[in-house]
Design a binder for these strands. Sequence first.
RNA 1: GUCCCGUUAGCUCAAUUGGAUAGAGCGUCAGACUUCUAAUCUGAAGGUUAUGGGUUCGAUUCCCAUACGGGAUACCA
Length: 582
Amino acid sequence: MSNIVKNFHNCINNICNQLINEKILDQNTNLNNINIDIPSDENRGDISTNAALIFRKFSSLNTMDLANIIKDKLLNIDFIFDVIVVNPGFINVFFTNDFLIDELKNLNTQGVEYGSNNIGKDCKINIEYVSANPTGPLHVAHSRGAVFGDVLSNLLEFCGYEVTREYYVNDSGSQIIALGESLYKRYKEQLNIKDEDAKIHLYPGKYLIDIANEIIKTDGDKWINTPLEDRAEYFQNYAIKNILKGINDDLNSIGIYFDKYSSEKDIIKKNYIEKVFSLLKDQDLLYLGNLKKPKGNIDEDWESRKQLLFKSTSFGDESDRPFKKSNNDWTYFANDSAYHYDKLQRGYKKLINIWGSDHIGYVKRMKSMVRSLSNSEVELEINICQLVHLKKDNKPIKMSKRTGNFITLKELTDQVGSDALRYFMLRRKNDAQMDFDLTKVIEKNNDNPIFYINYALARSNSLIEIFNDKIKKSNNFDLNKENFNKYLVKEEWKIIKKLLSWPHIVENCAIKSEPHRLIYYLEELSALFHSFWNLGKEQKSLRFIDENNLEKTICKIYIIKSMQNIFKCAYKILGIKIIDRM
RNA sequence: GUCCCGUUAGCUCAAUUGGAUAGAGCGUCAGACUUCUAAUCUGAAGGUUAUGGGUUCGAUUCCCAUACGGGAUACCA
């Protein structure tokens, strides 16, 4: 597992220990705030650190003197070519070319495993996402969380976590009762039987009609005039089963698969709510009380009610939260707490939930709950995916879930394809709102970054083809370090350094749960490649393939192979297809 | 009213968890195709990081206030 940033970090830590021994640094010097960066400006070295600026507080020496002492020690390390100290105390380090070539060989030896790490070693983690109610097909708003959760799972797996991808099915409660009755209503409708009961809320959309017709196909009109209690469960389960299958198909079509579906019904059957109840009671976190009247806009029929409340204020929430309704039923929050208790029982060391922005008000109470139920041993991380504004030709598309006039995930996938959908859903930070333009994401021009990176890959691939056809079929390159030094120009060293920063990018993305950075990395790498490619137009000697100079060509093709390796690895994490040719 | 998220170039967005001269793409202007694939590239112009304070060697980043935009706001799920 090679990571140039980590390697260098170790060097700095060693030097720090030496300095402590030499009494230059205080015994209790804190190393936590030391940054190791890959500078964006190449003049600032291949890697840089603020160590001297941090050490300043733990030493009688001034920052620049400290920096120079560290510099002298760094210069003794064999893979460091030069060190420059800059005001106010940054230490900029340049690697030797030999070191970079060794690392590039590492990259190729490790193949698509290059960049993986073990920060998640022995950590069982549960990532719950989508979890849309099984009352209708997935729509656009679900797709962002779906893709985000999937890629975060891939990424954490790559970092050594043992990941469970989980979908929580809300197959219980009043919505499901309404769903069952909606289906029954459609069933009657399809059999041309008049229904006077207009009170029942009907789920809009055509999908329930299709399901109703399936029931008619097998059962005919046998359910007509059966009492509610006899038919309810059948209609509910039938609807859930079919809708869930549709949801699953839609997800599969964009490459998303779950390891586990958890059912709310099952959780209730396990009596976990009662278990949670007593656990909270023991910690004195439940009490009977009245919530204060909320200020501002509220319904006119608000009334003060006595109900069982969870003390989430003791964890920083702004209000305590209802655990039971005033009629003594459990709230949804109580159910959800039981579900999280179930996850804890399964031995996860960390939980991640990915929620839509409409659930943002529930973040604090759920985090508080998991802390209470796990003795603060398990952290619940909640990533909020903000709204996606759909557009077409730069004009907003109006949608309303109430009338059933919304664009489904399936329709979106059919229009733009899985790759464009995934790529653009990931391209923005999850907690910022984003636009998604149906026409723009599939345009084949400069505006479209996914074509930009695919084009880089396609171009590089044609190089490999030409190389194999014309020059050499075998993979046994004679990789002579001297040749790299002799033939490569500064633009190519820049590409190599970019490639070697991949493990650092991966680690950062995983630690911060921010997969969008992978996308930006790919676009930057592609830019370096395209730019260098075009230099070859003006100056033939800079081209990758020179039939008259095998030694040089081999070095250059080796970089290309390394680059493709990184692309393959990144595409796998992002879940998008490799494009060989365009 | 309260809470959460956001505000960075004309537009859409980055910024390596407090670092150095805040970067890309689009758009604008000026250029590069007898090609290893022009779906590309080169150059120029474009900024008081919403505003005002604070913390410190150093702030787009952390804290406080203000403005604007979006979302959430008792027993639904």
